[in-house]
Design a protein around this nucleic acid. Structure first.
Lengths: 345, 345
DNA sequence: ATGAAAGCGCTAACAT
DNA sequence: ATGTTAGCGCTTTCAT
């Protein structure tokens, strides 16, 4: 390994001078400057970041704790974090809790995994990370993550009660906007397929729909608001029921894409054309929807953007110790597909 | 921050002793041992890994360069790497090249991004990583990644000419096995929808199919071997053509899942039942296939396992400098769905 | 069983 | 403009 001293010796100067040259800390004669640079290049010198970090008490390392890398949105968020990190000269230490395989569908019982979280936090703290970003696998409220550790922290795609900065998206608002779109197309009879009733995003999205409906003076029959399990199969069954009755809706709003595809297949089965006879929308802009005809109108949360913002927040906190906690809510995009038109009736 | 010395002072011993206690390097009286441990716990001491790494010239850091976190298999591979890393007490430094957005479909023109790769490698080397795992976004041959740097390296989900250890999977063999399954079910007339003809996995998989066909003495009409673009839409069109002719095949083998779903939708449109009238298979075990009925029979490469093996290989190299390069090929699983049965004719 | 001391590679205040 | 020096927090040899 080539060190500062090796360069210094070869250049006939001292380590300090080499350091000055490399860090551009002024006052070095152009001659030595060039000599040092040349030798450094020749020898393939690369500064030992560990040593520098130790000395500066600043690692330029950001710990990213993800509840699960395999969760659908996680990679996009990581991508955003990474993009911002690279730009600002930070490296990412990735810690993967692998919650999905551990808790299956019990999204709420995260507290049982507090140990795993503590362990991850302590390990990262030991690595002297300058800050930690905690990336949830679902958008929901979770217990505090930091157990007594002092370290800038930002929650991303989740948040915590009262404390901590967080970055999220506009579940309620975007569904309000989407619903208005349906209304403006002339739809008056709807079917809604929500996710699980114990899911926060599900309820938030419903609230947005409700608001638009209320404003339009439309009351949706309770039988037409159903809770699925976010999956294709059940949504398909629900859609068959909705579409088989006499008062069949002209539009079905599914609260995620898998379920929207379920609706689409139910319609196909029943020879109901989309969008001519039935309009459908999903949520997530996931693969499920992108590779299927007709392209289903859906909502795309700006996940990569969320990661970027999380990184920006954490850097603010790092640079400015007294930065207060803030909550960022990013607007989502409505992706127009070919699954929504005016009602044919 | 609490340091060794803080503990030492409080315990009335020297830093060395505390170090002995914490690292269990024998010879410490039980009394001091307990006292030190107690104080350390009270003060919430956590060893500064940076300092230790510097001193030991060993960072327990593995650099993971991924061509794109957003590529479909990348998160699963990362998950495997992570699992193995955690078990062995290593941390992951993640470097994301974000190639997908940069090169779109030009998978082969990676050399243009040699700079990005070099930069990532140098940065990681500067962080004193003990080894580097390079995770491809497609399974293919790429140029050497290390430009003169001395550092243990393992390629995962890709490989390089001659040099370097790598972990891959059995494209050809698993397709041979899958094809035999079709043959054993009694199928004799096939349609094959491959991916792009310039794609390595596509050609490898075709080779496996061909071998099984040859062994069974079956010749497939050239018109029934078509190259798609890995996407739903085109595959759907191809399937419609295949299924509209008079000699329609009893089975269509698609070389990935999106295309298999395209086949499934084409069949649905033409009122051809799956699996009664047509058997279909995909490849990847992706979302596209898991959330759709009928469940499509497909192939699941063991991606997480690949990540784990990559980690194991790199650790071998780290512990054993003269470890020679090896190539690991992991067997894939055939996932039985409901889309394959015997031909009805 | 414990301490003293040196040093990993780098930086920065201070001296020349 | 360059050198001297001390030290970041830790480990480890050698001494006691």
């Amino acid at each position: 390994m080539v060190t500062l001293r090796d360069i210094a010796k070869e250049a006939g100067v001292t380590a300090a001078t080499v350091s000055y040259v490399l860090n551009g800390s002024g006052k070095v004669s152009e001659a030595t400057r060039e000599r040092v640079l040349k030798i450094a290049k020749e020898k393939g010198y690369r500064s030992n970041v560990l040593a520098r970090s130790l000395r500066n008490n600043k690692s330029n390392l950001i710990g990213v704790i993800v509840e699960d890398v395999q969760a659908k949105m996680t990679p996009k968020i990581i991508d955003g974090i990474n993009a911002a990190a690279e730009e600002k000269g930070y490296q990412i230490l990735l810690s993967n809790l692998r919650l999905m395989s551990k808790i299956d569908a019990q999204f709420s019982h995260i507290s049982a995994y507090q140990e795993d979280i503590d362990h991850a936090v302590h390990t990262l703290a030991g690595m002297q990370v300058d800050g930690i970003i905690y990336v949830g696998m679902h958008d929901r409220c979770i217990p505090h993550v930091l157990g007594g550790i002092e370290c800038p922290l930002v929650y991303c795609y989740c948040y915590t009660q009262g404390e901590g900065s967080s970055v999220g998206y506009d579940n309620t608002d975007v569904m309000y906007r989407l619903t208005r779109m349906f209304l403006e197309q002339g739809h008056r009879s709807f079917g809604i397929i929500a996710g699980r009733s114990d899911s926060e995003p599900s309820m938030k999205r419903l609230r947005g729909i409700q608001k638009a409906m209320d404003e339009a003076g439309i009351r949706i029959d309770e039988k037409m608001i159903r809770f699925g399990d976010w999956q294709y199969e059940k949504a398909r069954e629900i859609a068959v029921e909705m579409l088989s009755g006499k008062d069949r809706p002209t539009a079905i709003i599914a609260l995620n894409d898998e379920m929207a595809v379920g609706v689409r297949d139910a319609a196909m089965e029943l020879q109901i054309r989309i969008p001519e006879d039935l309009s459908v929308s999903g949520f997530d802009f996931s693969d499920a929807v992108q590779f299927v005809t007709p392209h289903i109108t859906t909502v795309q949360p700006q996940l990569s953007r969320m990661g970027q913002r999380a990184m920006e927040l954490i850097l603010n906190k790092i640079e400015n110790a007294e930065q207060e906690n803030i909550t960022v809510v990013l607007p989502s995009k409505i992706i127009d597909g070919d699954s929504v038109s005016g009602p044919s009736v």
